[in-house]
Computed example of a mutant assay.
Amino acid sequence: MTLRIFSGFVAAALAVSSLSVPAALAKPVSGASAVKMIDTDNDGTVDMKEVEAVASTTFDRLEKDSDGTLDARELKGRLSAAGVKQADPDSDGTLDKKEYLAAVAERFKMADPDGDGTLDAKELNSKAGKALLALIK
């Protein structure tokens, strides 16, 4: 019985939302400091173009084996197993740059509840905003 409960707990833990911020990446980064780092046009917000530029650089930095994809090891916990599966439409267990940027775009959209196409410090401090930052830092 104990093993069955433990197995259920493990299954539930693995199914945790792909928005959860991995503990290893949960170092406190305020939304305001993130805006300062990402906001290249200095308008006090970040838009998808600015986030995509950072995400592209992050992908290139993480992609160590020069195969054009990120595997779980290279992702370093930025996405949960469920998050990788969701972002991997070809089900090859890796994310190419297009798939990675699509995952970033999805997180951006979730962090933008007012739908204005920009994220401010408050939105980046939300759970969805922190999940986005975990993926691109």
Rank of each mutant, 00 (worst) to 15 (best):
A55K: 01
V51P: 02
K49N: 09
L62G: 10
D60A: 15
R78W: 06
V51F: 04
R61K: 15
V46A: 11
D41M: 00
L62S: 15
S80D: 08
A34L: 02
D67G: 00
E52W: 02
V54P: 03
D65K: 06
T45E: 03
V46H: 06
R61G: 12
D47S: 08
N42W: 01
S80L: 01
D43C: 02
A55Q: 05
D65V: 12
D65H: 04
E74K: 04
L70R: 07
K49C: 04
V46G: 10
L75K: 03
L79R: 07
A34G: 03
D39E: 04
D67V: 03
R61I: 13
S33G: 08
D43P: 02
F59A: 13
T45C: 08
V35A: 00
I38H: 01
F59P: 06
G77H: 09
G44Q: 07
E74D: 12
K76L: 09
T40W: 04
K36L: 13
D41F: 00
E63D: 15
E50H: 03
D41K: 01
S80H: 08
E52S: 11
D65I: 11
D60E: 15
D39L: 01
E50S: 08
E50K: 03
L75D: 13
I38L: 15
D47V: 09
D39G: 06
M37G: 06
D39A: 00
T58L: 08
S56W: 02
V54I: 11
D60R: 05
T69W: 00
M48P: 05
A34Y: 05
D43A: 03
D60C: 08
D39F: 05
A34H: 02
K49F: 03
D43V: 09
G77F: 08
K76Q: 15
G77V: 11
E74N: 10
L62D: 14
D60G: 10
S33D: 15
K36I: 10
E63T: 04
L75P: 12
T40N: 12
D71C: 00
K49S: 12
I38D: 02
L79I: 07
T40G: 14
S56C: 04
V54E: 10
M48V: 10
M48Y: 09
V46F: 02
A72N: 13
T40L: 06
T57Q: 10
F59L: 09
D71Y: 01
G77R: 08
D71K: 01
S56T: 14
G44P: 04
V35G: 03
T45K: 13
K49Q: 11
D43E: 07
N42K: 12
T58I: 03
T57D: 14
G44N: 07
L75N: 03
G77T: 09
D43K: 04
E74C: 06
M48G: 06
G77A: 10
L62A: 14
L62Q: 11
V51W: 00
N42S: 14
K76F: 10
E52L: 07
D65P: 07
S33A: 15
T58H: 15
T45F: 10
L70D: 13
S80T: 14
D47C: 06
L79Y: 06
D39P: 07
K64Y: 07
E50L: 03
V46W: 00
R78Q: 05
A72K: 15
V51C: 05
K36W: 01
